[in-house]
Design a protein around this nucleic acid. Structure first.
Length: 271
DNA sequence: CCGGATGTTCACCT
DNA sequence: GAGGTGAACATCCG
């Protein structure tokens, strides 16, 4: 299943991974759904129940596969099914997983299929999630999410970072999905490192030039890492350990906590 | 054996 | 109200 050397960190779903799942989900469009099976009701968000899901999906088909941040959206003519992947979830369509390998779950295991639907043509779409952090939502509130990080404009970013005072740490604000949607812990560190901005910088104190720089690096970092293969392919990745050094200037990286997540940054060039 | 891990939500603090 | 913290979820890895 995997050709990745053992010991390498694998794909946890941030924006880039969910975009891959979305593309995979397009293989499931326009195929009539014959059966819905919930192997683990824990993955359903109220008021969805196995019976409700069957009622709204069986006999229907998905017409579009969209994504906003880390949320996958599957539209039928009547309702939209939302899927959140947590830290270990992946989508499987016709036995093809969305990623080659998952952190803490090398390869697929039938025990960890939480939800699946069978198409009338015999194919299947399934949610695979060892840690049970993924969720299926009926009619998710898309409006609670901020603009998607891949296409956020400078104006939208300015609004997202606004605060009454100096505001919370920049990184905490970037991780807030209601401000900007799609940035996870690894992407946040990589983007801030490339943009030369310190994670603890109060988010409302950025100058206009810094704001534009951040927006540019948001887009280019996401594009570049998408080509490389995912959120874990950043330049900073190999140095996320005690004694790790900045690939740009060789300074020893600092470690701290922002927005509740472990953060690595270069105290020499990130200001 | 123990601590930590890339996400989200919630209860509980300050 | 705004932010922060820690827990919970369950598994794997160093």
């Amino acid at each position: 299943m995997t050709d990745r050397p053992s010991g390498t960190v694998a794909d946890v779903p941030e924006l880039l991974e969910v975009e891959r799942y979305r593309r995979l989900a397009e293989a499931g469009l326009d195929r009539f759904i014959a059966e819905v099976t919930v192997d683990d009701p824990h993955c359903l968000t109220a008021p969805a129940t196995p019976a409700v899901l069957r009622a709204v999906l069986v006999g229907r088909r998905f017409l579009a596969a969209r994504r906003r941040g880390k949320l996958l959206l599957l539209d039928t003519a009547d309702v939209t099914l939302g899927v959140r992947f947590g830290m270990t979830g992946t989508l499987v369509v016709d036995d093809r997983p969305g990623v080659d390998d998952l952190l803490y779950a090398p390869g697929l295991d039938a025990r960890w299929i939480r939800w699946r639907l069978r198409f009338a043509d015999g194919g299947e779409m399934a949610l695979h999630d060892p840690r049970r952090l993924a969720r299926v939502v009926l009619g998710p509130q898309e409006g609670v999410l901020g603009p998607d990080a891949l296409t956020v404009t400078v104006g939208q970013l300015r609004a997202a970072l606004a605060a009454r005072g100096p505001g919370p740490p920049l990184k905490a604000r970037l991780l807030d999905q209601s401000r900007v949607a799609g940035i996870g812990n690894l992407l946040a560190d990589e983007i801030l490192w490339r943009a030369g901005l310190a994670p603890g910088r109060p988010c409302a104190t950025l100058t206009d030039a810094e704001l534009r720089r951040l927006q540019r690096h948001l887009r280019t970092t996401l594009e570049e890492l998408a080509l490389r293969g995912g959120s874990h392919t950043g330049d900073l990745m190999a140095e996320r350990h005690v004694g790790g050094r900045c690939p740009r200037d060789g300074a020893e990286l600092a470690r701290g906590t922002f927005g509740g997540r472990t953060t690595w940054w270069c105290p020499a060039h990130q200001r």
